[in-house]
Simulated scan of single mutants.
Amino acid sequence: MANDARIVGWAHGKFGQSEAADLQTLIAEVAPGALAHAGLAEADVDGVFLGVYNNGFLAQSFEAGLVGMAMPGLALTPSARFESACATGSAALYAALDFVNAGRGRVALVIGAEKMTTVAPQEAAALMIKGSYMPEEGHFTPGFAGVFGHIAETYFQRYGDRSEELAMIAAKNHANGMHNPYAHFRKDLGVAFCNDVSDKNPIVAGPLRRTDCSPISDGAAALVIADAATANKLNRAIAFRAHSQAQDVMALSGRDMTEFAGAARAWASSLAQAGMTLDDLDLVETHDCFTIAELIEYEAMGLAERGRGGDVIREGLTQRGGRLPVNLSGGLKSRGHPLGATGVSMHVMAAMQLAGEAGDMQLPGATVAGVFNMGGAAVTNYSSILERVK
């Protein structure tokens, strides 16, 4: 099977509490723009790959059919919906890559979308926690914050209190989000505010404060994938030097929850496929659903030994001017985390950087980027290495 699938266009909606009435409207906000950005038409699309978690946020099911309702020109185009918890968008994208690389089609449209603010925050937390291993973890409150609060507590017990380092990660991502017009939050909070427990920044779960947690967001993003022959005729092409998926045991009790071993395997596989090291990357977009996740991911990707992820942020390695800038888009913490859209959004943010189209977020001279998106507490792990080839 060839590995010539390219990103040739994209579109990204504003994340936050959207006035869009439903998922169909969110899809319509990004899909036409992605095709226009690629310089392609609906008739050029051979397959549609939609990432939506849903799980009760909306009454509508069979979401794959909504794409043809949002864009009548795609009503007869084969379409499928994918779900893989917080990695739903990447699951849809990787299926599209396989579709193109296998020669089943020349052009694929990938859409990630979620409408989460249709329910109260407490109900949203109850819907999201179903992405954990319910027999053992369903009691955690509030939702996944409880799961990651437990992970943070366990990490702190083993390696010491890292609350200030988590605050530094939150402050970094909020500062970066100031430059992202699509971000849910565009406010520079500073380390002191993020580190202090207050009425405006209360404890949510375990040692995690509100500023350690990504928000409940609505939003959508889209990518157009084309084979190399088609991409060569278009204005831009971002290649996948590598893309890897690694799985881990779903139940936290079945593994060391502080290690993110599946994430480490995904990163190692992608770097080996690409024939690269971290030093070859100009930037990374990583999955900071909670700040403790980004800290442990530093270790998983190889920036630090286990238990030393806090050193990475203290030394400024992942700041904009550091060795490897992480989450220049603001990450999930600032950009927002509409579940089905997140994986697609992360790849859009990286592609924008490599194409020199990132506006105020732009890192000058960026040519190679890493993306890491995970579902659950590092249960399913997607690692991509992108490089501009046109």
Score class of each variant (00 low, 15 high):
V368I: 13
S198P: 00
G47A: 14
P32L: 14
D199Q: 14
L354C: 05
F57T: 02
V48R: 09
D311R: 01
M361Q: 14
G322D: 11
E387P: 11
P215N: 01
E294G: 04
S18Y: 08
Q273C: 04
A222E: 01
V249F: 10
P338C: 13
A96N: 03
A167T: 02
R81V: 11
I292W: 06
Q24E: 15
P181S: 08
A293V: 15
P207G: 11
L354I: 05
T211W: 04
A369E: 04
S79N: 05
D256M: 03
I238W: 00
I238F: 01
L223C: 11
G13V: 00
I238T: 14
M178E: 13
A126R: 10
I385V: 14
T117V: 05
N54H: 04
T77V: 15
E259D: 10
A242W: 14
G13F: 01
T88F: 02
G131A: 07
M301T: 03
F148G: 00
G9M: 00
L127Q: 04
E114C: 06
M301L: 05
A170V: 11
A64K: 06
N232Q: 14
C86K: 04
E294K: 06
A246N: 02
S269D: 12
A351S: 15
N101C: 14
Y155R: 03
S329M: 06
E153G: 09
Y182N: 15
I225A: 00
Y182Q: 11
P364S: 08
T88L: 05
A124Q: 03
R320Y: 03
A264Y: 13
P215K: 05
L97F: 01
A377R: 02
I225P: 01
A231V: 07
L208S: 08
C194R: 02
N195V: 00
H184Q: 06
A229S: 09
M346S: 04
H184K: 02
S384T: 13
V110I: 06
I169P: 03
D248R: 05
C86Q: 13
M178K: 10
V48Q: 00
G370V: 05
E29R: 08
D4F: 00
M116V: 09
I216G: 04
A34N: 00
G375S: 05
A304W: 10
I296D: 06
L40M: 04
A91S: 13
G331R: 15
K130P: 01
S253V: 10
G138A: 12
R255S: 15
E299I: 12
F99H: 14
L339W: 09
W267D: 00
A80L: 07
H150A: 11
E294M: 02
M352A: 13
L271G: 07
N201T: 11
A192K: 10
V119H: 07
T342K: 00
G206H: 08
D360F: 03
T318H: 07
A377L: 06
V110E: 01
S334A: 15
I111Q: 08
S383I: 10
L76A: 13
R320E: 09
T141P: 01
Y53T: 03
A36K: 01
H174F: 15
N373T: 07
S163N: 06
S270E: 11
F99D: 15
G149L: 08
N101E: 12
A75I: 07
A226H: 09
A70C: 03
F260V: 05
V147Y: 07
G47P: 12
A41K: 12
T367K: 12
V389G: 02
A350D: 03
G307P: 02
A266Q: 11
R162V: 14
A171Y: 00
A70F: 02
R323H: 08
